[in-house]
Design a protein around this nucleic acid. Structure first.
Ligand SMILES: [Mn+2]
Ligand SMILES: [Mn+2]
Ligand SMILES: [Zn+2]
Ligand SMILES: [Zn+2]
Lengths: 184, 184
DNA sequence: TTCATTTTTAGTAATTATTCCTATATAGTA
DNA sequence: TACTATATAGGAATAATTACTAAAAATGAA
């Protein structure tokens, strides 16, 4: 049986990546190898490498915003004005299926995607709806509880944090619902 | 700084509640006190106690299925044939706002509600879409990472597990998408 | 209890997110 | 280059959620 403890075995380097610009590539070099890794992943999955797929993947990984389908669509059409929304939506689903991306778990009704496969976690701001990446080593491999082990196959373990982000901590209860009054 | 550890300080009683019947009350006695607690919560929030609110809350807490709005609607209309879908939807949102219920975090596009406020966690089956309750003590109070502490206000910490449930572990990759091919 | 005030509901329309359909275009291969 | 299975574009359809408003019901004061 495995538990959370409060021991502190030496400083771990933890990172908090806050957004800086929306859709800039993080690094030129890294972007290229990442793109090649993506092409290889497509080949392994028996999928064709199309300009649309590459552009969509690049838009996704070039953003730290955890964009919605529509946001990716708006970005990609700047380079490919004729791309259709459906292609973006379908491709993002495909990326998730082949493990090149995933949907960030949450309680909203708009799916938000992440193409960053490195170990990290998310903080969702319930006010501005921002999803902030952070990394806390102990969250990378949360142990599977005994009650589930054996009978259940756990494919993904996620620690989800919600609350008010650093930009919203002044007057947190003010205008909690930024967009609409309800949920969608 | 706080970490997950692998120590096992004596057996903790862990429970795994699998669904048995859909909308039966878990206990007659518990149901009554629960209902009174709900009425008190409404009063504290300045909300009126209406038959609809009580029925909706009862339908929610009387189920272990983490029902969708529509499922609650179908159940409540058996007793209140004239209730509208909108009332159910709006009321479920209200229950979440006053802390009498919450939306189970996930990556699907249908919101699923939970009126069980006792400490527990969820396993989401990606095949049959079932949400299974379980309880693993160490998950109840996941420590807030240092990178967030201070600048971020963490309101909710959730450990989300996904995979194949006990009923779906035979041929897990068979027919992964039970309902549609996509997501909604 | 009665009345005036406030809140909620029912029914329906509107909005938003996502998926489906299908003719055309294209990537990968021989 | 030609062939063929797969992918795309464009638009229509479906599904989930929310908005609107007249009518009904609850609340609190008289
Ligand atoms: Mn991320
Ligand atoms: Mn639950
Ligand atoms: Zn915020
Ligand atoms: Zn299952």
């Amino acid at each position: 049986m495995e538990y959370f403890s409060r021991v502190s075995p030496g400083k771990k380097q933890e990172s908090l990546r806050v957004k800086m610009g929306s859709f800039e590539n993080k690094m030129g070099q890294a972007g290229d190898s990442q793109q090649e890794a993506f092409r290889q992943r497509c080949r392994s999955a028996g999928l064709r490498i199309t300009p649309q797929r590459e552009a969509i993947f690049q838009a996704l990984t070039g953003s730290v915003e955890h964009p919605t389908v529509d946001t990716v669509y708006q970005e990609v059409r700047r380079l490919m004005p004729h791309i259709s929304f459906d292609t973006v939506n379908r491709t993002l689903n495909t990326l998730c299926e082949i493990g090149a991306a995933f949907v960030v778990p949450g309680t909203d009704n708009v799916r938000r995607f992440d193409g960053n496969l490195s170990d990290h976690q998310h903080f969702r701001c319930i006010k501005c709806k921002r999803i902030v990446d952070f990394h806390h080593g102990p969250f990378d491999n949360v142990p599977v509880p005994d009650v589930l082990a054996g009978r259940f196959i756990v494919m993904r373990k996620t620690v989800c944090l919600e609350g008010f982000c650093d930009q919203c901590t002044t007057n947190p209860m003010d205008n909690v619902t930024q967009t609409t009054s309800g949920n969608r």
